[in-house]
Amino acid sequence: MTEVTRRATVAGLGATLGAVAFAKAMEPLRHFTEDLSLDQFLQRHYRELSPEDLERVLRRIEEDTLRERGAHVSVADDRPIPGVQFGYALNLSVCNGCRKCAEACHHENNHDRSTNQSYIRVFEMEQGSLDFEHAATHYDHAVPAPGKYYMPVQCLQCDDAPCVAVCPVEATWKEEDGIVVIDYDWCIGCRYCEAACPYHARRFNWSEPEIEAEEINPDQGYLSNRVRPKGVVEKCHFCLHRTRRGRLPACAEACPTGARVFGNLLDPDSPIRWVLDNKRVFVLKEELGTRPRFFYFFD
């Protein structure tokens, strides 16, 4: 009997020690669960939210942003405009690589400051070649440099997007006006879409974004530029909180050389239609069959 009691005691001690060690090991998780409300946890997919639910979600996001970041923001739900299909063209003969578009995106979309994150990456290419292998993204000299041309790349809002196909929870999908959007509150952060995208267009929030309250752009959209939580994927959304209200996206406005042409493909008088009809446009990696909405041309 003493053998059994001794074993039982040792076992009991071991179990207690194990439980304590487990609790200690899990301790940092407390910070994670603190920020997670039950409402947030149970929130349904954007497409399943009733108008009242969506209102509640938008207000909650505004309250959370105020509480966590000290910034007053307004988050809207901008729906696609009927009769609109967005298209974008970029004049490679005119782009001078100044990165003002990337900078504007950074400010408009409330990106993390420390990484100087942007949805746009500008590639400095060798003239005469479309080979990205010898391109540079971190050039830091006066532009345009001799013998180079510049190619900004952002999400091309593909009509047959690989990222949409691979998402296991349908957190990303193509809307009626052509924009491929992400429900940041539904994304599980598996990054399969990031692996699938042929254009390096998607970004993952590896940490909580750092932005000062006064730098936060308060004019926000649920599917676009509200401050994203860590652990989810994001990408260019053609500034839908602007474009679905008729405005130009931030990158198009910021471009000082006028290389960017944005508009409604269904409007025969739009600049984008004129470009597609009159300029020799091409798309990146056409052979993959992604059918982008973003076109490039030389003048």
């Binding site: 090991a25 998780l29 390096h200 652990g231």
Partner: peptide, 30 residues
């Protein structure tokens, strides 16, 4: 168990701070 608990703690930290504790990036995302 000890090794597993080290792993549990590492995961708890990863959840609290974000995946930035790994060396994955937007370029090498897996």
């Amino acid at each position: 168990t000890a090794i597993a608990l080290v792993g549990v703690n590492a995961w708890a930290n990863q959840m609290a701070e974000g995946m930035v504790l790994t060396n994955m990036t937007d370029h090498v995302s897996w």
